[in-house]
Amino acid sequence: ACPVAPSSRSSQEVWESFSQCFTPAVKEVVEFAKSIPGFQSLEQHDQVMLLKSGTFQVLMVRFCSLFDPKERTVTFLNGQTYSLASLRALGMGCLLDAMFDFSEKLGQLGLEPDEMALFMAVVLVSADRSGIVEVAAVEQLQENLIKALRSLMSHRRPDDSTLFPKLLLRLPDLRTLNIQHSDKLLAFRID
């Protein structure tokens, strides 16, 4: 639920409320990560590193459901719908364009909620490895999660062997989104 400002509020206030909306969303990703079987048996340092490099990408997957690529609108959890044009005024134009494209491609795969959740777990443990201490343990967890996702999807759609590879092709898209945007968007933190 991230209400974007009515015109009466300054852009700083808009950014403040947007940044504050991010905090609960990030905390939810941390709780989600802790629920991934095997994640908490990783070194705590590695858990933190994966979260730091993967949370933005997981959020991008989660936010996809807010985007309507056909109508080019975003509907926040509080029900407020905004057109791409009105959101562009906040200066997030290029991220929004990228998000619309990404959510269109992901949406076309028609994943079930449990497949989407398993995909987000794969996204998190596939995040950047720099700074990871026990790479082998992370790689093993990633392999297990990919195996689980593949068997869930092939069990459900035995005659469609293209869907899983198409899904994995979204991982590089997410990495690009992360590289292009997570260190550009500014946030305000109030201490």
Partner: peptide, 25 residues
């Protein structure tokens, strides 16, 4: 008084994660 700090979203995310793990130590 409220002090505002401007940072990248990546740093904002890192800060929240660090705080969460520190709190659950």
């Amino acid at each position: 008084p409220k002090t505002h700090r401007v940072m990248t979203l990546a740093d904002h995310i890192s800060h929240i994660i660090t705080q969460d793990f520190a709190r659950n130590q």
